[in-house]
């Protein structure tokens, strides 16, 4: 009996698929019900579009002591912000480490608008991020080819593969090895960051990738990182390279 269990266990663990071959890469969209897919695909029914539209208004609102709007410098976002989110996080010359899109937006607020930074997960920062990321909608994820990012991406990978929390599960145990199967009532997606910020039915609001990662960390009974932590940015860097080629969906809808 013991031998049988052990054999079965070995068979099971060698079944583990490890890294997902590019032909099998699938967005979380593909694992959703047709109703939720339709809600995302039709911009008139996608609740995330409310944030995008709000962001369009914020884009040209002047802010801070500099009395400048994003538009004062970047003009038409449809042209100047096109493709930006698809290649973030990028290397930040100031801090000499990767910066995510929300961090980059806050940088412009502080240094160009002379305004206080917006809090992580604040509605305003989510709104601006959603608007900027929407300009990459439909474009393939193309991670920045900057060798200086490599070690941070590897750090992100290490977090992805490490067993975490009281339950001792790694991101990879679910998203590399068991995607497509069910955890309780939810189908486990591959964990690609294609749609952020996105509208989650469970949140009844738009939230960031970091909020999603927080959920997975709390799920394995691990202490989440502080919002904005460098670990989240490193994990995002790894997730974006893992998702290379998939199309940006911001603002996506998820259950």
């Amino acid at each position: 009996m013991l031998r049988f269990v052990l054999l079965a266990a070995v068979a099971f663990s060698s079944m583990a698929r490890a890294e997902i071959p590019s032909k099998d890469k699938r967005s979380g969209f593909d694992f959703m019900s047709p109703q939720t897919q339709a809600m995302q695909s039709d911009e008139t029914s996608n609740p995330g579009m409310l944030w995008v539209l709000d962001g369009e208004r914020m884009w040209s609102e002047s802010q801070g002591k500099a009395e400048k709007s994003c538009a004062s410098c970047h003009e038409d976002a449809a042209k100047t912000m096109r493709g930006v989110a698809a290649r973030y996080p990028a290397f930040d010359e100031q801090t000499k480490r990767p910066i995510d899109l929300a961090g980059r937006i806050n940088r412009c607020r502080e240094t160009r608008q002379d305004a206080p930074p917006l809090a992580r997960e604040s509605n305003e920062l989510l709104t601006l991020s959603a608007y900027v990321a929407y300009q990459s909608h439909g474009m393939p994820i193309t991670p920045a080819a900057d060798r200086r990012l490599d070690k941070y991406r590897e750090n992100g990978r290490a977090w992805f593969e490490r067993r975490l929390g009281q339950l001792q599960l790694s991101c990879a145990s679910c998203h590399d090895d068991r995607w497509g199967a069910r955890l309780g009532g939810s189908v486990i997606p591959q964990g690609h960051p294609t749609g952020y910020p996105l509208y989650r039915l469970e949140w009844q609001a738009v939230g960031s990738l970091q909020r999603r990662l927080r959920g997975c960390l709390v799920g394995v009974r691990a202490e989440p990182f502080e919002y904005g932590a460098s670990e989240y940015v490193d994990i995002e860097l790894f997730l974006m390279s893992r998702a290379a080629g998939l199309k940006m969906e911001t603002p996506a809808v998820r259950p």
Partner: peptide, 17 residues
């Protein structure tokens, strides 16, 4: 999960408080 042992915590394991 291991139901009846204590997981040794560290900065890399991050067991929630």
């Amino acid at each position: 999960p291991v139901y009846f042992e204590i997981i040794a915590d560290s900065q890399e394991v991050r067991v929630a408080e």
